[in-house]
Design a protein around this nucleic acid. Sequence first.
DNA 1: GAAACGTGCAAGTATCCGGTTGCATGTCTG
DNA 2: CAGACATGCAACCGGATACTTGCACGTTTC
Lengths: 115, 115
Amino acid sequence: MSRLEAATGAAPPDPAAVFAALGDPTRLALLDRLSDGRPRSISALASGGDITRQAVTKHLRVLEGAGLVASLREGRESRFAYRPEQVRQARAWLDTVSARWDDALGRLKAFVEGV
Amino acid sequence: MSRLEAATGAAPPDPAAVFAALGDPTRLALLDRLSDGRPRSISALASGGDITRQAVTKHLRVLEGAGLVASLREGRESRFAYRPEQVRQARAWLDTVSARWDDALGRLKAFVEGV
DNA sequence: GAAACGTGCAAGTATCCGGTTGCATGTCTG
DNA sequence: CAGACATGCAACCGGATACTTGCACGTTTC
């Protein structure tokens, strides 16, 4: 049922899965191309690069599984569109970690300065 | 010489590598624990979880390779500390993508509304 | 110095990942 | 209908990954 979840937008907020999906140069490039908001078909996305259409398909499925992308079948082709929600989620996680670090640093500074 | 790079802070700004390092629940948990700024030894980090000390060591080496963490040998133990630079880098990348998406969405909206 | 502690190194294993190729299926278009 | 086009499915392969176990080596500590 994970495909349905990804398609319906009920992807679980799993930071590790999102980061894992982002942790590949090819997928990052695909996302970058899709981040202009225009949905594209698989072969359209595969034509530019040097890898097979099948490889692109697999990468798109991974991105879809992480909720970073949504697919919509239109006739004989299926178009993939970028979805910003999970990116926001990932940013939120990074913000949390950064914030905690900054807090710790601030506390350390305060301690050193004798506050 | 990658160990030296990671130790001296000259890690290359490769978003995919950083995301790949973040794309594992165990590593994410380690980073989360280290993000309070307090360096910890390997066995201290391994004691809490249910995996071997060796597994923790490998994960820490991965994080170190991505520049997310720095190691410092102190006597018989080596302490690992969180490094915020790469996290900032990753956030900046996500910000870029998000911004582009928002721009594209804004332009699309404007176009649809006949502006 | 001996025991305990923290770590590193090496080998081994099962699984996942990125990528390919070959073939079958559905869908437009002439 | 026939051919071109877009995709899906399945098998396969080489390399990376996540772990483990076993052992050796430096470092405290008593």
